[in-house]
Design a protein around this nucleic acid. Structure first.
Length: 496
DNA sequence: CGATTTTGACCCGCGC
DNA sequence: GCGCGGGTCAAAATCG
């Protein structure tokens, strides 16, 4: 097909990560990095910085202070200055006065921007701290209540809850709503994913959901948050009015291809012009199985049209080819990290918070969080070399992104399947348990010196796999066919 | 002819 | 209540 041809062409163009050519790509990416502003998503101040940069560049070029402002403020002064500088002497005083004023103004604006930036940073941190503190308190309270109420239940329950809490974006607020007195508003205010409440409510009061229940609930309830079988107890207080919101994992990468081949079959069902972006956003739906709720959005970055942003949403309700599974697990883990960072206690996951908050505004756009979006969103920026990922340089940090490749994918991707001793973990307080799991996994992954390469290889193998190879080419990535994706994860992937 | 894409209409949530 | 924007639907068009 034509599209596939384009994909293959793109894949052969060497413009994307190839799992067998890390070095060259890194060089290329680094080159790109040098040319591009690192900050791409949080660019509230980019314009001012840009102008400032322009100004300084001009200053150094011309060795004169008379020209810079010409580019910044369209005063028409460039009629005199840029060409020769001869005419500059005629009206030397007046322009200099104006220019100095403008420079002063520019400095002032620049300082103001700096101040605002730091304020924003501070507010963000404060918000996260408060969120973590509140959640911690609610967790403690809810945990106490639940232990009382379910004293006769097995430890599996709590483990499953915690495991699901770990992996299920929507269930991560489980404990938050265990106590009805503090559920609604506070939880929604604090939680990055307000609608987590819906599923949480559905999971708590009734029978203990099986693994399949949990997964089905998340994967098949696409767009139907009312479908919870556990809401029946309180029909009037159901949460259907709370819209379903899913975690998002945004992965950006460079690509000239209109689509990436990720191992799944997609059917386009809509296209929209998004505000603020000249490029249309396309909506795709998984057609590998009837009723598969997974959808994805594809859009080019407004700032750099070479950057393709693809958003996966939901969970496949069917077996996946290995390549697709690897992708699903990878992005699911990103969602897990996102939600774990936003819903666990401060002390247990403050490294995550620090990581995200520190990485959010600046260069480490490899993984950034957006709590302001309707969906909690994590962005994986593959426009930079994997080896330049800041968090990967700190392997001992629990904040290391636990992309579930190889052996670890099974754990992160299927915590409820593979954990052999739930009771052992369930004796630990939830917050610590959660953190323990995450730390264990992240440490295990991060300790692998080949992790960077493996990550790049896996992703590139997934993206680079032509559609015809679906189900036949696993590219060495150990993936489970048919393994479910992280419940309600929403992943964005952009090819590089 | 079936599958896929296109595209305008529609729905829904949100802010004012 | 209204307008806006994001997301989805579905009929028509297109493709292989």
């Amino acid at each position: 097909m034509e599209k596939q041809g384009r994909e293959l062409e793109f894949l052969h163009s060497g413009d994307f990560l190839r799992h067998d050519s890390g070095a060259s790509d890194q060089v290329k990416d680094n080159t790109v990095d040098l040319r591009k502003p690192i900050l791409k998503e949080v660019d509230f101040f980019s314009s001012s910085e840009k102008t400032d940069r322009l100004t300084r560049t001009q200053e150094t070029k011309n060795g004169s202070s008379s020209t810079p402002v010409v580019d910044v403020v369209n005063t028409g002064l460039n009629i005199h200055t840029p060409s020769s500088g001869i005419s500059k002497t005629a009206n030397d005083d007046k322009p200099k006065t104006e220019l100095s004023m403008l420079e002063t103004e520019l400095d002032r604006v620049h300082n103001e921007n700096k101040r605002l930036k730091s304020m924003l940073d501070q507010v963000t941190r404060s918000y996260k701290d408060l969120q973590a503190q509140l959640l911690m308190a609610m967790q403690k309270q809810a945990h106490g209540n639940r232990e009382k109420q379910r004293g006769d239940q097995s430890g599996n329950s709590s483990f499953i809850m915690s495991a699901q809490q770990l992996m299920d974006p929507r269930s991560s607020a489980t404990l938050d709503v265990s106590d009805p007195s503090i559920s609604d508003e506070k939880t929604q205010e604090v939680s990055a994913s307000p609608t987590q409440t819906a599923d949480v409510m559905s999971q708590i009061p009734g029978k203990q959901p099986s693994v399949e229940d949990c997964l089905d609930q998340t994967s098949q309830s696409s767009g139907s948050p009312k479908s919870s079988k556990l809401d029946q107890g309180k029909p009037g207080e159901q949460v259907p009015e709370i819209p379903l919101r899913k975690a998002r994992v945004s992965v950006r990468a460079r690509s000239e291809a209109p689509l990436i081949s990720d191992g799944c079959q997609w059917r386009k069902y809509g296209q929209k012009m998004a505000k603020g972006n000249p490029c249309p956003r396309a909506y795709y739906r998984c057609t590998m199985a009837v009723g598969c709720p997974v959808r994805k959005q594809v859009q080019r970055c407004a700032e750099d049209k070479n950057i393709l942003i693809t958003t996966y949403e939901g969970n496949h309700s069917h077996p996946l080819p290995p390549t697709a599974t690897a992708m699903a697990n990878t992005t699911s883990a990103a969602a897990a990290m996102l939600l774990s960072g936003s819903t666990t206690s401060k002390e247990s996951l403050s490294p995550h918070n620090n990581f995200f908050s520190n990485s959010l505004p600046y260069a480490s756009t490899m993984a950034t969080l957006s709590a302001s979006a309707p969906f909690p969103t994590i962005t994986l920026d593959l426009t930079h070399s994997p080896n330049s990922m800041p968090f990967l340089r700190v392997p001992q940090s629990p904040a290391t992104f636990p992309l579930p490749l190889h052996g670890c994918s099974q754990f992160l991707g299927h915590p409820m399947y593979v954990s052999p001793k739930p009771q052992a973990i369930s004796t630990v307080p939830l917050g610590q348990r959660h953190a323990s799991i995450m730390e264990t996994v992240t440490a295990a992954i991060a300790s692998d010196p080949k992790f960077n390469e493996a990550l790049a290889a896996a992703i590139s193998s997934i993206v680079g796999a032509p559609r015809s190879s679906d189900g036949a080419n696993n590219n060495g990535v150990s993936a489970l066919v048919g393994s479910p994706q992280l419940p309600q994860s929403c992943t964005t992937f952009s090819t590089n």
